[in-house]
Design a protein around this nucleic acid. Structure first.
Length: 278
DNA sequence: ACGAGGTCCTGCGAGC
DNA sequence: TGCTCGCAGGACCTCG
């Protein structure tokens, strides 16, 4: 499930291939992925657009476009099962089936947004729209501007379970279920603990582990459980390094206790060690 | 402001 | 074998 490390990997793979390229045309198979833009407006804007930048913000891939008379940002959030890949060959029938957006490029290759479950979203924003969208998102966890004090302030402002706060994109971006589980385990913090009850020491440790784990996951090209692929179509490798997510019922790698799981926080699976996370 | 629960989507695996 | 059903979940919504 594309969280920060997965989208960062996609963006790093796409950037050298996509910047400078012109999009010839575009086709969209399903309109239900669009947010705030009609199919007609999106396809019209993409046809002939030049890509001038590929960046990441939160869990979104942001493709900066130069249009004849204006600029625009194509914002793709892969959701659960989305991937962005540049193909230099014809698609297999299976690949074509789930290709939601297809955009042939001026070099003969094709940019494909693939999304099996289509929980991902596509936006097309102008500068003002982007500013508003960006402003509603929390700070980037890997940005040094997010100081331990600022992070502590964010956590102190909510009585919700720390895991839920960590996954709230308005408070801090990029962390989803997998990395929230991993970071809380590494920091030895009970996921259900009210965020505001964490000590300064807790929040410092948590930020450190969030950063360490996100960085390690980027280095491993992300976590592939089923659908996630890098920008070149490869699987990630960080699933091999997970200590709790997907390991419920197995033994804790630190203390050997059987890992517990619950759906009580935000109706998502939380896997944790009773002993290491008190 | 908060918690609870529903919605979107489809593939997959369990159970019968 | 073939069917139904629950689950996976990020973001967003409504309701109380």
């Amino acid at each position: 499930m594309p969280e920060l490390p997965e989208v960062e990997t996609i963006v790093r793979d796409l950037r050298p291939q996509l910047v400078g390229r012109q999009i010839r045309s575009a086709k969209l198979s399903h309109e239900d992925v669009l947010r705030g833009v009609t199919k007609r407006r999106l396809l019209t804007a993409l046809a002939g657009a030049r890509v001038v930048g590929v960046t990441r913000r939160a869990k979104h891939a942001v493709i900066d476009l130069e249009l004849p008379a204006r600029t625009a940002r194509l914002v793709i959030q892969p959701g659960m099962t989305g991937s962005l890949i540049i193909h230099d060959r014809a698609l297999t029938p299976d690949e074509a089936k789930y290709a939601v957006l297809r955009a042939p490029l001026d070099d003969g290759r094709e940019l494909i947004y693939r999304d099996v479950r289509r929980l991902g979203t596509i936006l097309l924003l102008d500068d003002r729209g982007w500013s508003a969208y960006d402003a509603a998102l929390g700070p980037e966890p890997l940005d040094p501007a997010l100081t331990p004090a600022r992070f502590a302030g964010i956590l102190a402002s909510s009585r919700q379970a720390i895991k839920k706060v960590l996954m709230d994109q308005r408070k801090i971006v990029g962390v989803g279920n997998i990395y929230a589980n991993e970071a809380l385990f590494a920091a030895g913090i009970d996921p259900s603990r009210p965020s505001s009850r964490l000590t300064t020491h807790d929040s410092r440790r948590l930020l450190k582990h969030v950063r360490r784990i996100l960085s390690a996951a980027i280095a491993s090209q992300g976590t592939t459980f089923r659908d996630y692929r890098t920008g070149t179509g490869a699987t990630g490798n960080f699933q091999l390094e997970l200590l709790v997510y997907g390991r419920e019922g197995e033994k804790c790698r630190v203390c050997g206790t059987r890992l517990a799981h619950t759906h009580e926080i935000d109706a998502r699976i939380t896997v944790f060690c009773h002993r290491c996370q008190q």
